[in-house]
């Protein structure tokens, strides 16, 4: 098997594309970091080369004006398999010299559209699944741990909506997206902030838990459906799934 060892970035993938066309070879997989291969396999290290990246980008742009945008979106996917999926898509676009995104029966397109769809589904879900805590200073803080790297995709929605400083903290990626009242900042940090709650915080969170219980129609229990719409892995950060105080 032929492995390309690349930099874990979009440019890393695009550099691999150049190499593949240049050498008329097709890698079986793309890897990064300290990846070890067996003696039967070949590992080829490919450095990012800006000139090459530029040429691949312009080729992609020529055949599909949305390709690059889609690729950087797809790169948000939470599993490493994305490298090969994006590689295949970029390769076939340049090879066939056209926009194939709607060729729904093609396995490469299928896989690519699939990861894009999963990211946008998760982004949409999190417009609802973010829970803010109000701090004593009136700042809204939320921690999430989504499957994919979507936290900054939520920014403009909440900025327009809340119109007040807020923080969205992706604890899986140690990534903090914040609105300071004027613009967006993205910070990477392992430090968890110390928060002092607003005096009303407990009142509202207890009330919401109560609400969550009382709108449920017990006679119509259907937890399978609930699980499908709201997978259990998302629930640990949600107010309504925390134990409530007795009345």
């Amino acid at each position: 098997m032929l492995y390309y060892k690349i930099e874990n970035s979009v440019d890393g993938i695009l550099s691999a594309i150049f190499e593949s066309f240049l050498k008329k070879e097709y890698p079986d997989n793309l890897v990064f970091g300290g990846f070890e291969v067996s003696i039967f396999d070949t590992l080829k290290e490919i450095k990012v080369d800006e000139e090459r990246v530029k040429r691949v980008k312009s080729a992609l742009n020529k055949y599909n004006q949305f390709a690059l945008e889609k690729i950087s979106y797809a790169f948000r996917y939470g599993e490493d398999i994305k490298l090969k999926i994006i590689f295949d898509f970029a390769y076939i676009t340049i090879d066939k010299k056209k926009n194939l995104l709607k060729m729904f029966n093609n396995p490469i397109i299928l896989a690519f559209n699939d990861i894009v769809d999963r990211i946008s589904l998760e982004r949409h879900r999190f417009l609802g699944f973010v829970r803010f805590i109000e701090t004593d200073k009136g700042i809204l803080y939320s921690h999430i741990s989504p499957d994919h790297d979507i936290s900054d995709l939520l920014f403009s929605h909440f900025k327009n909506r809340l119109n007040t400083p807020f923080i969205i903290h992706d604890t899986k990626r140690d990534k903090v997206v914040l609105f300071n009242g004027n613009d967006k900042q993205i910070v990477y940090t392992k430090k968890l902030p110390t928060l002092y709650l607003h005096e009303n915080e407990e009142y509202f969170s207890e009330l919401f838990k109560r609400y969550f219980d009382s709108v449920n129609i017990k006679e119509r229990k259907n937890t399978k459906l609930q699980d499908r719409y709201m997978p259990r892995r998302y629930r640990k950060n949600l107010t309504e799934f925390k134990t409530k105080k007795p009345l």
């Binding site: 609802g128 327009n160 119109n163 969550f212 449920n216 937890t223």
Partner: peptide
């Protein structure tokens, strides 16, 4: 949002799901 709190999303958003499988919006 006209300078206060909130706006509406054309497609609608579900915020949670109760154990009867219904959405809380």
């Amino acid at each position: 949002n006209l300078g206060g709190l909130g706006n509406a999303n054309l497609g609608g958003i579900c915020h949670s799901f109760t154990s009867d499988g219904r959405c809380i919006s």
